[in-house]
């Protein structure tokens, strides 16, 4: 663990750097550290922001200075070990691909020399790891997209993308939890709500989850939306 760097982000946060690449092992170390800090929750702890390779620890600088926080974190890192993590939750997300919900499905197909059905098949057969939640409330950064359907971002971002839209950007795929501007290629939409401010935790997905996408028809999309099965 001597390779781990800990550095300040201003006067109220410390960034713990657990790796330099986006990979499942670094992700597991991030999760282990989050579990360890949550378990012991020292009084100066404000909150944690886990990301791909880092855990940023926000602290109350009236109660502790950076050196104290760093020492405490190093003491936890020293015993982090290779403990097995709790098994990942598997979350299935129904997606209506193409049509008005996925206006860029044809772009993704053409870019990769595939038919639209092949893109749907490849995307929905994938198993995706939620590396982190960020950018917007409940937005999952997913790993595991097949190179066969990777597609660059649009050159001009759209002003507004509806909540639930499933997109591809380079080697990433994700779902927009709230309506935001964005440059991703849009291939479908889910009726499931990813951001649930009335719940705690307020998101469908959490870091460490495994996500699978199930293709559904427009009729099934409507039925799920109206049936209220999507919370």
């Amino acid at each position: 663990m001597q390779t781990v760097r800990i550095e300040p982000l201003g006067d109220g946060a410390a960034v713990v750097r657990l790796g330099t690449r986006i990979d499942p092992e670094t992700h597991r170390q991030v999760r282990r550290l989050v579990l360890a800090v949550d378990r012991d929750a020292p009084p100066w702890l404000v909150e944690l922001v886990p990301a791909f390779t880092t855990v940023t620890v926000f602290y109350d600088a009236v109660q502790a200075d950076f050196a104290e926080v760093e020492d405490w974190l190093r003491s936890r890192l020293a015993v982090l070990g290779d403990d097995p993590l709790p098994p990942p939750r598997e979350v299935r997300i129904p997606v209506c691909y193409g049509g008005e919900f996925g206006p860029d499905l044809g772009v993704v197909a053409a870019h990769n020399g595939l038919t639209e059905d092949e893109v749907i098949s490849i995307h929905s057969q994938g198993e995706y790891l939620v590396y982190m939640i960020g950018f917007a409330p409940g937005f999952p950064y997913l790993g595991g997209l097949s190179e066969r359907i990777a597609t660059p971002r649009r050159s001009t971002p759209r002003v507004s993308i509806p909540a639930g839209t499933v997109g591809i950007a380079g080697m990433q795929t994700g779902v927009y939890p709230i309506s935001t501007p964005g440059g991703w290629q849009l291939i479908g939409r889910t009726p499931v709500r990813l951001f649930r401010p009335e719940q705690d935790p307020p998101t469908l997905l959490q870091a460490g989850d495994i996500v699978r996408f199930d293709p559904i028809s427009p009729e099934e999309y409507q039925a799920l939306l109206e049936g209220g099965d999507v919370q």
Binding site: G10, A13, V49, F58, M132, G134
Partner: peptide
């Protein structure tokens, strides 16, 4: 690689013009 930002962070996109993040910044 994306990581935490906070209020008061000065980040610099590729165009070289800094952005000073305030209360409603992304996480």
């Amino acid at each position: 690689i994306s990581e935490a930002v906070t209020m008061g962070t000065l980040q610099v996109p590729p165009d070289g013009n800094p952005i000073l993040l305030m209360a409603d910044r992304q996480t």
